[in-house]
């Protein structure tokens, strides 16, 4: 339960962080809130040789709306985004999902970008980003690139990030006019990993439905027309497609049932709160 030895560097600018990443690659890890990374280090599931502490980089501390997105910098904690005055108005799905993330005591340090970079298949933020069709901004000494959420997270705890790249921001699309949003999840205890989490965006034409905790990464499907008028058949097919497996928390059958039941309820809730 003690991490193995490593070196620690606190950096003041993104350029210093990506310079260290270019030199140390896979041996280095970015440290922001540390709410997943340090627990994994305590278990020695990861043993980085260098931690690059980015919490002091001023340029990464902003929450800013521009061009139809809200850009959240890599040093922004979950608690800070939850306290952002425009959250419920501009990012209603996040406003509904964020109280489910961990606990008051972990949201105070855990970062928004950190959770997405960590890419746990049952985490709320990667699911919201995928369901909204958001983006992840990566930087390295080679330059900057922006990936769609779907291209960023490739599987459980794995992403398209190269070893010399760092996540500098994530971009959440702002509320669509007339759309409705809903989120819910099932956990064994408040704040635990979700056995199944469901997010939905309902517009006049379709519902985008995202499910976390079942497949190896958040998975989004679109329902429209006849499938939306009577969604049980489509939800059943989607539940099987996700290919969940038995583990110590739940059986695959139970997870499929959750997709069908919570999915149905969340679709209806998202449709009913369309403005």
């Amino acid at each position: 339960m003690k991490p193995s030895a490593f070196d620690y560097q606190r950096v003041a600018r993104v350029e210093e962080a990506i310079d260290l990443l270019a030199r140390h690659g896979e041996d280095a890890k970015i440290l922001a809130g540390g709410q997943s990374l340090v627990a994994m280090m305590n278990y020695r599931l990861v043993e980085p040789k260098l931690l690059i502490d980015i919490t002091g980089i001023e340029g990464l501390a902003s929450i800013e709306e521009k061009g139809g997105f809200v850009d959240v910098g890599a040093a922004v904690t979950q608690a800070r985004l939850m306290a952002w005055p425009a959250l419920a108005e501009r990012l209603p799905l996040l406003a509904k999902a964020m109280p489910h993330i961990g606990h008051f005591q972990t949201r105070s340090r855990g970062t928004v970008c950190g959770s997405i970079a960590h890419s746990d298949p049952s985490s709320e933020l990667p699911l919201v980003l995928a369901t909204l069709g958001g983006q992840v901004v990566l930087r390295s000494k080679r330059g900057s690139r922006t990936l769609a959420a779907d291209d960023f997270q490739t599987g459980p705890l794995s992403t398209a990030r190269e070893p010399d790249e760092m996540v500098v921001a994530v971009r959440f699309p702002v509320r669509q006019a007339g759309a409705g949003y809903a989120f819910d999840e099932v956990t064994q205890r408040q704040g635990d990993f979700a056995i199944c989490s469901v997010a939905a965006v309902a517009t006049a034409q379709e519902v985008r439905l995202g499910v976390g905790g079942v497949a190896g990464r958040p998975t989004v499907t679109r329902l429209s027309g006849a499938a939306l008028a009577n969604p049980d058949g489509a939800l059943n097919a989607f539940a099987w497609e996700l290919g969940g497996s038995d583990d110590i928390h739940a059986t695959a059958q139970y997870r499929r049932q959750l997709v069908r039941r919570i999915g149905r309820r969340i679709i209806e809730e998202a449709q009913s709160c369309r403005s």
């Binding site: 340090v38 305590n42 606990h103 005591q105 972990t106």
Partner: peptide, 26 residues
């Protein structure tokens, strides 16, 4: 020692934090 039980919670710059999920250098 992995951030679940909350026994080691302190206030870090006034905000609650698990001290087992932080390093002293921080």
């Amino acid at each position: 020692e992995h951030g679940v039980c909350g026994a080691c919670t302190i206030r870090f710059d006034g905000r609650p934090a698990r001290s087992c999920l932080m390093f002293a250098v921080q």
